[in-house]
Simulated scan of single mutants.
Amino acid sequence: MLILTHKLHLKRLEREIPIEIRIYKPEPKDGCWACAFEIDWPEGTKAMSGAGFDALQALVISLQMIGIQIYTSSYHHDGALRAYDTEEGYGFPVSRNVRDVLIGADKIYL
């Protein structure tokens, strides 16, 4: 079951391409919990899931995995990706070993 969506915007020439992110309700799987998500990159949809001891941990890990996918993408490195009109950042946390690449509000709050 889809629980939320978030949209990023990729600047390409004179237009912007929407990058939709979908996060699904965590569900029990193989003795743990899994939280599936999808990112609609221009080259195709990336589908993954984070796993945890309980539903909350699975959701948090998925959010961090999304953040890592965004921050390590070539689109971020090219400076062509944005989530908000007036502030930098994408709204997703990352694990501790990737925090040095955060920008804008993400760097302050996440």
Rank of each mutant, 00 (worst) to 15 (best):
M1G: 14
L2D: 07
L2E: 15
I3C: 08
I3L: 13
I3M: 11
L4A: 03
L4F: 07
L4R: 14
L4K: 12
T5V: 10
H6C: 04
H6N: 12
K7W: 06
K7N: 08
L8A: 15
H9R: 13
H9I: 06
H9Y: 12
L10K: 11
K11L: 14
K11H: 15
L13K: 02
L13E: 09
R15K: 15
E16W: 01
E16M: 01
I19R: 02
E20F: 10
E20I: 12
I21T: 14
R22A: 12
I23R: 05
I23Q: 04
I23T: 08
Y24K: 11
Y24N: 03
Y24S: 14
K25C: 06
P26R: 06
P28V: 00
K29D: 15
D30G: 04
W33T: 02
W33H: 14
A34V: 02
A34K: 11
C35T: 01
C35Y: 02
A36M: 10
A36P: 07
A36L: 13
F37W: 11
F37E: 01
F37L: 06
E38P: 03
D40A: 11
D40W: 04
W41C: 04
T45Q: 12
K46P: 01
K46I: 10
A47T: 11
M48L: 12
M48Y: 06
S49W: 05
A51W: 08
A51Y: 10
G52T: 00
F53V: 05
D54L: 03
D54H: 05
L56F: 02
Q57L: 08
A58N: 03
A58P: 04
A58V: 02
L59V: 00
V60W: 00
V60M: 00
V60I: 11
V60F: 01
I61H: 00
I61A: 01
I61G: 00
I61S: 00
S62R: 09
L63S: 00
L63C: 03
L63T: 00
Q64K: 12
Q64D: 04
Q64R: 07
M65D: 05
M65P: 02
I66W: 02
G67E: 03
I68D: 00
Q69N: 13
Q69S: 09
Q69H: 15
I70L: 14
I70M: 06
Y71V: 02
Y71M: 05
Y71Q: 06
Y71A: 05
T72R: 08
S73A: 07
S74Y: 04
Y75H: 07
Y75P: 04
Y75F: 13
H76S: 04
H76L: 08
H77V: 05
D78V: 01
D78S: 14
G79E: 05
G79D: 02
G79L: 07
A80G: 00
A80C: 06
L81V: 07
A83C: 13
A83Q: 10
Y84V: 08
Y84P: 14
Y84N: 11
Y84L: 11
Y84A: 11
D85V: 13
T86Y: 12
T86D: 14
T86Q: 09
E88K: 14
G91F: 06
G91P: 08
F92K: 01
F92S: 01
P93W: 07
V94W: 11
V94N: 03
R96M: 08
R96P: 02
N97T: 14
V98T: 05
R99V: 08
R99P: 03
D100I: 07
V101I: 13
L102C: 10
G104R: 01
A105M: 13
A105N: 05
D106W: 07
D106G: 10
K107Y: 09
Y109Q: 07
L110F: 13
